[in-house]
């Protein structure tokens, strides 16, 4: 038996230095501070923790945050798919600029997105003034939260789907067509299954991003407790009242939800790379 080795030998220098620095910096900036959150929660005790995280106001914030995030991610799954498809499969004047601007929600600071969307959807805003007479209250309502979360999630779906669509082998579609499949059949039976992992991943990324979002939502939501208060804002509110245990406990719930989604994404990736390899 050969001795177990932690690292394969290499002729390149600098392994100890770079790995040491990486781990040290990672620990100082990320791991130690994050662990503080969990240690802090551990001092609470289970009952106290449960009392905080199941408080009706907190539960209402979960409902809004998860509901609006889910709605936003679903809207993005549908429209993001259409956008990605159009950008990959068609050409029209100005496509490159449109393509570049898809990243805008990612590049634009969230505070700017927040006030811009509020200016649009407020009852006297550009779009809000036309919605108001229809009885639709966009800003300062769950709908406004959904709009903001749709905005910030869009690039995640489009940018995950684009490479998958580009990688689709067009000869497979041609084969399907040559075997008599119509366009709709080809789409449902050939294309959709092939890009399903990317679609799921993009959806999950958009959902995860929306869960933790703060800046673009606080302006448009109105922040009415029990109605339009998102969980991220609730954490800040608790902090401002110096209710550290409260803020910490709610943060742990959100963090666990984020990690669960991260885990789901990894699962999808693993599944997509293994699903056609059974028996090999």
């Amino acid at each position: 038996m050969k001795p177990f080795r932690l690292k394969q030998p290499s002729v390149l220098p600098g392994f100890g230095l770079t790995l040491g620095y990486t781990v040290l910096y990672l620990s100082l900036i990320v791991l130690v501070p994050l662990s503080a959150l969990f240690f802090r929660t551990a001092t609470l005790g289970w009952e106290e923790f449960w009392r905080i995280v199941s408080d009706p106001r907190v539960v209402a914030s979960y409902r809004l945050t998860f509901g609006a995030s889910l709605a936003g991610a679903l809207i993005n799954a549908v429209f993001g798919f259409i956008v990605a498809w159009t950008l990959v499969r068609t050409s029209f004047p100005g496509k490159k600029i449109v393509d570049a601007l898809v990243d805008l929600p990612f590049a634009l600071p969230t505070a700017v997105s927040g006030i811009a969307l509020t200016a649009l959807y407020a009852p006297n805003g550009w779009l809000g003034q036309y919605l108001e007479p229809l009885g639709i209250k966009a800003a300062f309502s769950p709908l406004g939260v959904t709009i903001a979360l749709t905005f910030i999630g869009l690039p995640f779906v489009v940018r995950t789907l684009q490479p998958a669509l580009e990688d689709l082998d067009s000869s497979v579609e041609e084969a399907a067509a040559s075997l008599g499949a119509g366009r709709v059949q080809t789409f449902l039976r050939i294309i959709l299954p092939a890009i399903l992992p990317a679609l799921l991943t993009g959806f999950a990324l958009a959902f995860a991003r929306a869960l933790g979002e703060y800046g673009s939502v606080v302006f448009i939501s109105g922040n009415m407790p029990m109605q339009t208060e998102i969980t991220a804002l609730l954490i800040i509110t608790k902090l401002e009242q110096f209710d550290y245990p409260g803020a910490t406990a709610i943060a742990v719930v959100m963090l666990v939800a984020s990690f669960a989604i991260l885990f789901f994404i990894n699962l999808v990736q693993w599944w997509s790379s293994h699903r056609y390899r059974a028996g090999v």
Binding site: L26, A36, L37, S258, F259, I261
Partner: peptide, 24 residues
Amino acid sequence: LLLTLIDLPFAVSPVISGLIYVLL
């Protein structure tokens, strides 16, 4: 594991990113 840990800050809500330093 190291790769996953490096990505971790992307999975953390900005609000929580601030909170952890307040806790420290």
